[in-house]
């Protein structure tokens, strides 16, 4: 295991610590996208780029990644979900420079990212615009409006990744309102799309950082609760906070031992 993979594990532990200390759920969807966010922030983003987290319920992951870069402190994370915090349960509209938009209601991030990309296009500014959505949120009509718009306007700087963990609020995406093949739908809308293993650091870096002209989409196949055996692909970890025993077990599973395969 290289140093970056160890940093990812350390950040996952910090994420769990933050959620445990604040008694907050939404852990499953945070663990499904943390690898992708770590790769994006540490390996891909430049100062000219913009990132929009459309799946705002993964704010914990975003805060933890910013912590891993020293942009948020331990003191900041201690305030997560408490009174007088900057770190609300979903990303706030102001107060943290790195957070572009308050999100949390689904189906807003991609249209916002499209607006930023259009602004860059009109002003002929450098930089790319990255957006991370959940898979369930493609049930929102506004995403399809944005997809039509992005392709039609040829928003070359726009890259959207779908955290396809297959679980949503009250069931699997397939059971609740199946989109069947999201990939085929992107294809049909004229949006180039590739599928990647959403927990493979190298594949994520290649997908996020590809120099291919946008707009383009990446479907990242992920596991909700990735890295913690009792959370893995379990819907209830969309919501539940951990008790102390569960927290201890989760941390133990995420203790990195050099040379070991990732848990």
């Amino acid at each position: 295991m290289d140093a970056f993979e160890q940093l990812i594990l350390k950040t996952k532990r910090r994420l769990l610590q933050m959620h445990f200390e604040s008694g907050v759920g939404h852990i499953g969807g945070n663990l499904s996208c943390l690898d992708a966010l770590m790769v994006l922030y540490h390996r891909v983003l430049t100062p000219a780029d913009v990132f929009v987290l459309s799946k705002g319920h993964s704010a914990g992951s975003l805060y933890s990644v910013l912590w891993s870069q020293g942009r948020l402190s331990d003191d900041d994370l201690k305030q997560f979900h408490r009174d007088q915090t900057r770190l609300s349960g979903h990303p706030p509209p102001s107060g943290i420079r790195e957070i572009t938009f308050a999100t949390g209601s689904l189906g807003h991030g991609l249209p916002l990212a499209a607006g930023v990309a259009l602004g860059k296009q009109l002003k002929q500014e450098a930089g790319r615009v990255f957006c991370l959505t959940s898979d369930g949120e493609w049930q929102e009509g506004s995403n399809w409006e944005a997809l039509i718009f992005a392709v039609h306007r040829r928003l070359e700087s726009l890259v959207v990744m779908v955290d396809a963990n297959g679980l949503q609020g009250f069931g699997t995406t397939r059971e609740v309102a199946s989109l069947h093949s999201l990939k085929e739908k992107f294809d049909a809308f004229g949006m180039p799309v590739e599928e990647v293993d959403g927990h493979d650091v190298g594949a994520l870096e290649r997908a996020w950082g590809s120099g291919a002209r946008g707009p383009r989409a990446i479907i990242a196949r992920t596991e909700k609760g990735r890295g913690v055996s009792f959370m893995r692909n379990k819907m209830e970890w969309h919501y539940l906070p951990m008790n102390e025993a569960q927290y201890r077990q989760a941390i133990a599973e995420l203790e990195a031992v050099p040379g070991d395969p990732a848990p």
Partner: peptide
């Protein structure tokens, strides 16, 4: 286009870009 939700969010994104 006939997509007011997207249009308003796009406007917000444009405003974020100055």
């Amino acid at each position: 286009g006939i997509a007011e939700q997207n249009m308003v969010s796009v406007a917000a994104g444009l405003a974020r870009q100055g």
